[in-house]
C-alpha cells in the first residue's frame, strides 16, 4: 500500500464539493429532527389516546428499523404516489424523520423532569394547555436537554454517508466514485474518515461547552422546586 500525496491534492476539490452537501444535509435534517421531535414528544403526552398511541407506535417503529431501508422506502415509494423528490430532499426528510424519533425521547426526558407542581401551578393560574406548554413547561424542559440534543447532531452527521445509497452526491459518494474511477481506494476513503474524525472531535468540545453552559439549568430548576 502506498500513499500518493499528489493524488490527494488532485481529489481534494471534488471531496470538498461532497463535504458541502454532507454539511447541508446534516443541518437541514437536524432542523427537521429538532422541530418534529418536539412535536412528537408533545403528541405522545396528549390525553387523547387516538393521538398518543399512534405517535408512540410510530416512534418505536422508526427507532427499530434501519435508516437505510427507510431512505430506500422514501426514495422509491414516493414517486409511485406521484411525488417526485430530488435525492437530497428525500435524504433530508429521511434523516430528519429518523432522528426526530430520537430527539423526541430526549424532549420526553426533559418534560418528565419538570416537577408536577409546575403543571398544577399553571392550572391554578388558569393557563390554557397551550400557554402552559409554551410559557411554563417547555422552557424548563428544553434548556437542560440541549447538550443531549447536540449529541444527536453529531450522530446524524456520521449517518449522512447513507445518503450515497440513494444517489445523493455527498462526501462518501464522491469518494467512492473517485475510488472506482481511479482504482485507488486508500486515499479517498481514508480522507473521508479523517474528515469525520476531525469534525466529531471538534464537536465533542462543543458539546462539553454546552454541558457546562446549560447543564446548570436543570439543577437550578430542581433546587427551586
Amino acid at each position: 500500500m502506498d500513499w500518493d500525496w499528489q493524488f490527494v491534492w488532485q481529489i481534494l476539490p471534488t471531496l470538498a464539493e461532497g463535504a458541502k452537501i454532507t454539511i447541508i444535509a446534516t443541518l437541514l435534517g437536524y432542523v427537521l429532527a429538532v422541530v418534529l421531535g418536539l412535536l412528537l414528544a408533545i403528541m405522545r403526552r396528549s390525553h387523547n389516546g387516538f393521538v398518543s398511541k399512534p405517535t408512540a407506535g410510530f416512534v418505536e417503529f422508526v427507532r427499530g428499523t434501519p435508516l437505510l431501508v427507510q431512505l430506500y422506502f422514501l426514495f422509491y415509494i414516493l414517486p409511485e404516489a406521484g411525488i417526485t423528490l430530488a435525492p437530497l430532499v428525500a435524504g433530508v426528510i429521511g434523516l430528519g424523520l429518523h432522528y426526530a424519533t430520537y430527539t423526541s425521547e430526549v424532549y420526553r426526558a426533559g418534560i418528565d423532569n419538570v416537577p408536577r407542581g409546575q403543571w398544577e401551578a399553571a392550572k391554578a393560574c388558569n393557563f390554557t394547555t397551550r400557554q402552559t406548554w409554551r410559557h411554563i413547561v417547555l422552557p424548563q424542559a428544553i434548556m437542560p436537554v440541549i447538550p443531549a440534543l447536540a449529541n444527536y447532531l453529531i450522530a446524524m452527521f456520521k449517518e449522512t454517508p447513507l445518503l450515497s445509497a440513494i444517489t445523493v452526491l455527498e462526501l462518501m459518494n464522491q469518494a467512492r466514485s473517485i475510488a472506482n474511477y481511479n482504482y485507488r481506494y486508500v486515499e479517498p476513503i481514508t480522507l473521508v474518515g479523517v474528515f469525520f474524525l476531525v469534525i466529531s472531535l471538534i464537536s465533542v468540545v462543543g458539546v462539553k461547552y454546552l454541558e457546562r453552559r446549560f447543564g446548570a439549568y436543570g439543577k437550578r430548576g430542581r433546587a427551586a422546586s
Binding site: 500500500m1 475510488a179 486508500v186 473521508v192 474518515g193 469525520f196 472531535l201
Partner: peptide
C-alpha cells in the same frame, strides 16, 4: 466513535 460506521466498513472492505 468519531468516524462513521459506513466509512469504517468501506475502509475495512476496500483498503
Amino acid at each position: 466513535r468519531g468516524t462513521s460506521i459506513f466509512v469504517q466498513l468501506f475502509w475495512i472492505y476496500y483498503v
